[in-house]
Design a protein around this nucleic acid. Structure first.
Lengths: 247, 247
DNA sequence: TCTGGAATGTCGGCTGGCCGACAGACGCCG
DNA sequence: CGGCGTCTGTCGGCCAGCCGACATTCCAGA
């Protein structure tokens, strides 16, 4: 765990920095290790640090008052987390927890901001990162509101494929992250049982296989075809026009 | 509509710029007017401009394949919209539409980025803006997954109050934005009928009144009290611990 | 090899909230 | 003043998906 990970995350913040910027940033904080399963920060704690993950995987999630978990995303090496409170500080609303042994560069919020002010290239990367994340979360919201459970799970699989998918010899793609049905449920706002049944349906249709808590997708784009098969507006309160009513 | 709006939005990007930055930014784009009801951009169009709203109100929303609308937010004077595609460009996923007559500074994405690179103070404001918006969207996601319809509507009212609420003489607060039940439904991922019934319940409990499509809240924090009254975990698949299982 | 905890498969009952339907009410415009 | 389109209130039927309750499988550790 002492050398830099061989794995390069898709939206790789750390890897896109210049050597100088990377060194400068490193000097702003300190490298901290967390054992698998350890909470890195909690909801309610003060959001006065930002984190750059150098090794391992981190789960970022929230807990509702009723104890329901909502997994927002998994942070990969090279990416940052703890950014949402960067502007104003204030209390965290989410938890971050080490899924594996983790190594992260931890920087006080104010020092990070100060550093950005002096290194425009890094600031621009942060802007890009935030803008991408905004876009992604927007998709999530649409997904939650507009889609039924089956669609949500299928879209989750497709998203996971983009992020964790590796091609296998036989043309299928393996999602290289171990997930329980409960976790998938927490990522899609549904229940373990529902995820179970959707996954099994897909399994029976031969669209995926599971081994060692990892899913492999048949790569024929079969899954995508499931998405657009059931689109037809209903017509009770008839379809609203896109324009705002003049009032 | 030719002078700057008297109204200052809560997270006021434009107003927080220095005079110099403001002038510089103005030179990057051009001021465009849109009549009430006119679409400013559509999903599917290329996201190669960003917008700074100087006058009026803009609705940012998406349409699901089934025609269901999802209103993400209303942009107020001084704020920016069209930022989600700033990093990578690509197609918009959302629509923006003028709720009132609108005046906006329209800047090509690349010129905006170029400007940011030369004016760190503006870049920092953009970072702050994005980070706040990220935080807000995160709340929305939690809201959607964890809360039932009544709670979602109540929380919507509280959010609207923060953003549009003005105190009245009698101690109540008026939400200074005209909304139909349909729009509130589209903001909370529910149906017009459900919003109707929730609003009426609240009305009957004396927690709010409506006139001219605008809602007034009794300011006793009565609404907040509704939120924490029903928190008790269920216990089928018993409450999961916050820690990841060791695997 | 045994044992216990976690993960998974599955089923039936229950219900929140969607859907369709329709009846006022409230403007707005000619 | 009359007519039309939009918005609001309300009801009953219906169903996707939640919930509880097992049984089973699959490790990891002793």
């Amino acid at each position: 765990m002492s050398t830099t990970s061989w794995y390069v995350a898709p939206s790789n913040f750390w890897g896109r920095l210049s050597d100088g910027s990377r060194a400068g940033l490193s000097a702003q904080g300190s490298v901290v290790r967390f054992r698998k399963g350890i909470p890195i920060f909690r909801a309610g704690s003060s959001g006065d640090h930002v984190y750059i993950l150098t090794e391992g995987r981190v789960k970022v999630y929230a807990l509702s008052p009723l104890g329901r978990a909502v997994i927002l995303w998994f942070c990969l090496p090279g990416e940052m987390f703890g950014l949402a409170e960067m502007a104003r500080g204030g209390e965290r609303v989410v938890y971050a927890e080490a899924c594996t042994d983790v190594e992260a560069l931890v920087i006080p919020r104010e020092r990070f901001r100060g550093f950005l002010e002096g290194d425009i290239s890094v600031a621009m990367l942060v802007v890009d990162m935030l803008s991408c994340r905004l876009r992604g979360l927007t998709d999530t919201v649409l997904n939650l509101i507009a889609d039924d459970v089956t669609t949500r799970v299928v879209k989750l699989l497709l998203r996971l494929d983009q992020r964790y998918g590796v091609p296998l010899d036989d043309g299928s793609r393996r999602l290289d992250i171990p997930l329980t049905h409960q976790e998938m449920a927490d990522m899609t706002g549904t229940t373990r049982q529902s995820v179970s049944s959707v996954i099994n349906e897909l399994k029976q249709q031969g669209l995926l296989t599971v081994s060692d808590h990892r899913i492999s997708l048949r790569d024929d784009r079969c899954l995508e075809t499931l998405l657009n098969t059931n689109a037809q507006p209903s017509s009770g309160d008839l379809a609203r026009p896109a324009t705002t009513a003049v009032r």
